[in-house]
Design a binder for these strands. Structure first.
Length: 882
RNA sequence: GGGCGAUUAACUCAGCGGGAGAGUGCCUCCCUUACAAGGAGGAAGUCGGGGGUUCAAAUCCCUCAUCGCCCACCA
């Protein structure tokens, strides 16, 4: 016998169900068939552990993947992790620091070995957490961005772009993180508005000009004056015209620097005179280039002052600022300090303030790559969901700047460029180079590694075997949909599109889902370090994996970020339990000898639930195809709870009790509807549904190895069950039953006391109600039920106008006439107001002339109904007054 | 400086041109033999302010306010 425990226990179900999926090898890729559906997971960092963003994003991916798999499409979800250069290196350095060591103490080779050890120890943590969520990735084929094959792919990309001249080396101002000790690309810098100061500094002239002996400059970073090589003014600025060409003596250091004229200077900002530090500001660098100035580097890699800073050498940048300002003030050269809000760049990995720093780095020339990347979205080969993200994408792509790809780290893909110091040869190569091909001297390899995102951009095709032309690449590329957080739209999504187009000649995916960001209840970013986060593992412990998944899906909308609400998870857990118990009810009624038969519309209730099921299947199918997860979750919730459980199961009970053919027919329908609905729910609640489905007494035709690979309900085929008459009839039934229940509640009549109800209804409605009178009596607890076209109002009755009828509930000795009068008066007022508004609308010629015919017709019907209601209520009020 | 999103019931949010919805919370009643993680009933909103378009606006347009986010070489 199929006996379920009375409450759903996720802990008892999830483990065994996942094990069944694994043992059945149901996650593994299938390469038979056509038009495969492929998703590549945004590879989590090996250093990572599951956070709410992962929980949301991976639920979304699993939902679309599971639906696809059930439709019989060859479906594959590619899994793997990212080596995460900076993050992993930081972890390993921390580990070394605990032993009082730095990476330089152990050396490059040993350090990389330690990184691999870290990966071996921690890399599976996040994968196990995805399994805990029920994600149906192809775990048999896990990838890593430092795998041997992947390394070959990265090298191939670099060498190819190097040879095409798209990769080049240059001395530029880059973003330097002094803590990570590496360059960063522009989009790895997070800008933050901070309250700072604008210091006004007096720079003395070497010789007075026109009676003036100084010029005042303004700066937000006074310590950089140590690297100043000129002062710039606008060429048209009358105030400074005489000073152009004069010489300034740089305070504190005594260096003589010129005053130059440059268009860049905005005369309206500050004093109109700018101190220029070409080695520490991108704009100043440009000015320096134009005027042939020296570029004096005053900062070391650790952001301490270099020997160029004279007496300030060795000071940290903060101390240097304090000392420089103090010394200038002592010398009477500090004119003033204003408060000034400006945005300061921080490292996206460690939040240290970055320094613009002049150094030799490798760059990718992005403009030629961006053009096709823009084109493929314009011609809808790639579509963003929600669509508005396309504008954000275009904006960035159109203004794209070159990408600094070299990192001064050890953990990562080492740049495959070799230099000969003897003859100056340099080259990039797929194979390591030992000796110079020109002069035969030994060569050295570039010390730097590539930006982690340089390898991540290859994820959709490097995981499929590229640069080899593998069958997998041929079959699964391009992938179908990429789901991701918006903060890596530029870092990752855009670059995958560009590299995919360049190397494979096709877009990497057709659809891009940019999912909402999960914030905490206060609307703040969830963050472990701030203690504002919620741990998905805790949530799963409380609500089950399905409860968490469904609760998240309920919160997904197309245009709003998620202020995470644990309430939704609680109601999802209740929902899971509700489904569990509905299933338990059905299974309790199914005997050993039950054999599944065809569903059939034996009664109005059957026709109704089958019609509702058809509607649900259409909604869910469309909702998942168009990535409307919140709406889809709500449709499932409403169907299961408010239609199947609240009404259909209740309507089924008397027939189950009746036995015989009636019982068999309703059982067939219960099993069919539950089966179909559970299939539709499976993508969002995989564990619960798998467990229930496995226990359903299905015919061989409906059976499958597991629900996970069972057939997705076909909305077109279910369309045969659509039945508007049945939906209207059950609508009347529900209205009548609810009205009677309301009367019962109003007078606190125990549910055990049967009521006497008579209904005065028009012919048509009356016939429908009569045909369902058994159901009505059961659901409303009615002992005697009469329907007629001219039923008289009994004495001592409470009267309700509903379902187009007057419903009299006899309540001898209980009815409070004054209360009834008050209630009827209120209802009458409301109905009259609605009727007045409608009447005015229907008298409006503009409305009659311009509104759609069906709208007018609908309003006319409503007006008729309201007029009936008003006259009935008026009659009742008269009765009650007598 | 530019752009995007939000503002609907106490809370979290759907709805996005024709009758104001859900979940949670709250109030009343009920342990009815699937489920008290439940059932039945109920209270609760001039849909941010102001203009406009339209026969009709929570829904479209403009504007203001507030909150949030993104982009921008903002000495």
């Amino acid at each position: 016998m199929n006996q379920l425990p009375p409450a759903y226990d996720p802990d008892a179900v999830e483990g065994p169900v996942f094990q069944r999926w694994t043992e059945g090898r149901l996650f593994e890729q299938k390469t038979e068939g056509e038009s495969p559906f492929t998703v590549v997971i945004p590879p989590p960092n090996v250093t990572g552990s599951l956070h709410m963003g992962h929980a949301l994003n991976n639920t979304i991916q699993d939902v679309v993947i599971r639906r696809s798999r059930m439709t019989g499409t060859p479906t594959r979800w590619v899994i793997g992790t990212d080596h995460a250069g900076i993050a992993t290196q930081n972890k390993v350095e921390q580990r070394l620091a605990a032993q009082g060591l730095s990476r330089y103490d152990v050396g490059r080779e040993k350090f990389i070995e330690l990184c691999w050890e870290w990966r071996d120890e921690h890399g599976s943590i996040i994968i196990d957490q995805l399994k805990r969520m029920g994600c149906s990735c192809d775990y048999s084929d896990e990838h890593f961005t430092m795998d041997e094959g992947y390394q070959r792919a990265v090298r191939k990309v670099f060498v190819d772009w190097f040879e095409k001249g798209l990769v080049y080396r240059g001395k530029r101002i880059i973003n330097w993180c002094p803590r990570c000790s590496t360059a960063l690309s522009d989009i790895e810098v997070e800008h933050e508005e901070l309250d700072g100061h604008l210091w006004h500094l007096r720079y003395p002239l070497k010789e007075p000009v026109g009676g003036r002996d100084h010029v005042v400059v303004a700066t937000t970073r006074p310590e950089t004056m140590l690297g100043d090589t000129c002062v710039a003014v606008h060429p048209d600025d009358e105030r400074y015209r005489d000073l152009v060409g004069a010489t300034v003596v740089l305070p504190l250091l005594g260096r003589e620097i010129p005053i130059v004229a440059d268009e860049y200077v905005d005369p309206s900002f500050g004093t109109g005179a700018v101190k220029v530090t070409p080695a520490h500001d991108p704009n100043d660098f440009e000015i320096g280039e134009r005027h042939g100035l020296d570029k004096i580097n005053i900062l070391t890699a650790e952001a301490t002052i270099t020997a160029e800073g004279g007496p300030y050498e060795g000071l940290d940048r903060r101390e240097a600022r304090t000392r420089v300002v103090a010394d200038l003030e002592a010398a009477g050269l500090l004119v003033g300090v204003d408060d000034h809000v400006h945005s300061v760049g921080h490292c996206y990995r460690c939040h240290t303030v970055i320094e613009p720093w002049l150094s030799d780095q490798w760059f990718v020339d992005m403009k030629p790559l961006a053009a096709p990347g823009i084109e493929c979205v314009r011609d809808v080969r790639v579509t963003f969901h929600p669509k508005r993200w396309e504008n954000v994408y275009y904006h960035w792509m159109e203004g794209i700047r070159d990408w600094c790809i070299s990192r001064q780290l050890w953990w990562g893909h080492r740049i495959p460029v070799f230099y000969c110091d003897e003859c100056g040869w340099q080259g990039a190569s797929m194979e390591d180079v030992e000796v110079c091909p020109k002069c035969g001297a030994s060569v050295r390899q570039d010390e730097d590694v590539l930006d982690t995102w340089f390898s991540s951009q290859l994820w959709p095709f490097a995981t499929l075997g590229w640069p080899d032309q593998t069958p997998e690449l041929d079959f699964f590329y391009p992938t179908t949909v990429l789901s991701t957080a918006r903060d890596i739209l530029f870092l990752w999504v855009a670059r995958m599109i560009m590299s995919g187009l360049y190397f494979i000649g096709d877009v990497p995916y057709q659809d891009v889902i940019i999912h909402p960001t999960v914030f905490n209840a206060e609307g703040r970013r969830m963050s472990k370090s701030l203690g504002t986060g919620v741990d998905p593992l805790d949530l799963m412990a409380h609500y089950g994996a399905d409860g968490m998944r469904f609760g998240l899906m309920l919160q997904v909308t197309g245009n709003q970020d998620i202020k995470f609400s644990e309430d939704k998870l609680a109601s999802s857990r209740h929902f899971a339990n509700k489904i569990w118990n509905a299933s338990r009810f059905v299974l309790m009624n199914v005997g050993e000898d039950y054999e599944q038969g065809e569903p059939s519309a034996e009664t109005v209730a059957d026709a109704w639930i089958l019609s509702r099921l058809a509607d649900l299947a259409a909604h869910v199918d469309k909702g998942l195809i168009t990535y409307e997860f919140g709406e889809t979750a709500r449709a499932l919730y409403d169907f299961f709870w408010n239609e199947f459980c609240d009404w259909y199961i209740e309507l089924a009970k008397p027939r189950l009790a009746a036995g015989g053919a009636a019982r068999k027919a309703v059982l067939d329908n219960l099993v069919f509807v539950l089966d179909s609905a559970v299939r539709l729910l499976h993508p969002m609640m995989p564990f619960l549904t798998e467990e229930i489905w496995g226990r359903l007494p299905l015919s061989d035709a409906e059976r499958a190895e597991a629900l996970m690979v069972a057939a997705w309900p076909d909305p077109a085929a279910l369309g045969r069950f659509r039945n508007e008459d049945a939906e209207r009839s059950v609508g009347l039934l529900r209205e009548l039953v609810s009205s009677v229940r309301a009367v019962r509640a109003r007078y606190s009549v125990s549910p055990k006391v049967p009521l006497e109800v008579s209904v005065k209804a028009p012919e048509a409605e009356g016939a429908v109600l009569l045909s369902m009178s058994d159901d009505i009596c059961t659901l409303a607890g009615i002992g005697r039920f009469e329907v007629g076209t001219d039923t008289a109002r009994p004495a001592h009755a409470s009267v309700v106008v509903a379902a187009g009828s007057e419903i009299y509930v006899s309540l001898e000795g209980v009815v409070d006439l004054a209360a009834e009068r008050a209630r009827v008066t209120t209802e009458l007022g409301r109905a009259q107001a609605d009727l007045d508004r409608l009447t005015r609308k229907l008298a409006n010629e503009g409305f009659l002339a311009k509104a759609a015919a069906e709208i007018i017709e609908k309003d006319r019907m409503r007006a008729r109904d309201l007029a009936t209601t008003v006259s009935k209520l008026t009659g009742q009020l008269a009765d009650l007054t007598e």
